[in-house]
Simulated assay, not measured.
Amino acid sequence: MSEIDKRNRLSEEPFTYQITKKGMVMVYYDGKQIKLIKDREAYRLIAKIKEVEDDKTKVQLLLAKITGNFKRGNEKLGKNKK
């Protein structure tokens, strides 16, 4: 795991998820929704999460991989943030 998470960011548990009644998975990063996963992909993700739910780092890694490379460092700050 150390080669994948070199900066040890996943130990902070930045990703959370919520499974809806319809079987969709909403993925959040620091409390903000970043991805909505539906249909077959959602069922696969739920199955993978249930396999590794005891290891929080593996769950974080699954969520990080499913979201892709969404955070590159060039995001604009909001109006009220400096």
Rank of each mutant, 00 (worst) to 15 (best):
D39I: 13
K35L: 06
P14M: 05
K35T: 04
E3G: 13
E53Y: 13
G78D: 14
E53D: 15
R40C: 11
Q60K: 03
V25I: 14
E12I: 11
G23C: 13
K58S: 04
L45R: 03
E75W: 05
K48D: 08
M1I: 11
K76Q: 02
G23Q: 06
N69H: 15
F15M: 02
G68R: 11
Q18I: 00
V59E: 04
A42W: 04
L62M: 04
A64I: 00
S11I: 10
S11H: 10
L77V: 01
I37S: 00
K65T: 07
K32N: 14
A42L: 11
D5R: 15
N74L: 14
N69T: 08
I37Y: 00
L63K: 01
P14V: 14
Q33V: 15
Y29G: 01
T67N: 06
A42K: 06
I19T: 02
K81R: 15
E41L: 09
A42G: 08
K56Q: 15
V52R: 00
A42H: 05
D30G: 13
L10T: 07
S2W: 10
E13I: 12
L62C: 02
L61E: 12
Q33K: 10
K22A: 15
K22Y: 10
Q18V: 01
T16I: 06
G31Y: 12
K56S: 08
K50C: 08
T57D: 13
D5K: 09
K81C: 07
E51Q: 13
G73W: 06
K82T: 09
E13M: 06
E75I: 12
Q33I: 13
Q60T: 09
E53K: 10
Q18C: 03
K65I: 12
P14N: 12
M1C: 08
R7G: 04
L36P: 00
I66Y: 02
I66V: 13
E51M: 15
K50M: 08
E51R: 05
L62Y: 02
R44Y: 05
I19N: 01
G73D: 05
D5A: 04
R72Q: 07
L77S: 03
L36W: 04
I46G: 00
K50Q: 09
D5T: 06
R9N: 12
M26I: 09
R40F: 14
Y29H: 10
R7I: 13
R9D: 07
D5L: 04
G78S: 09
D30H: 10
S11D: 14
Q60V: 10
L63F: 01
Q60C: 04
A47K: 09
K71G: 07
V59S: 01
D54F: 12
A64E: 02
T57C: 15
N74K: 11
S11C: 14
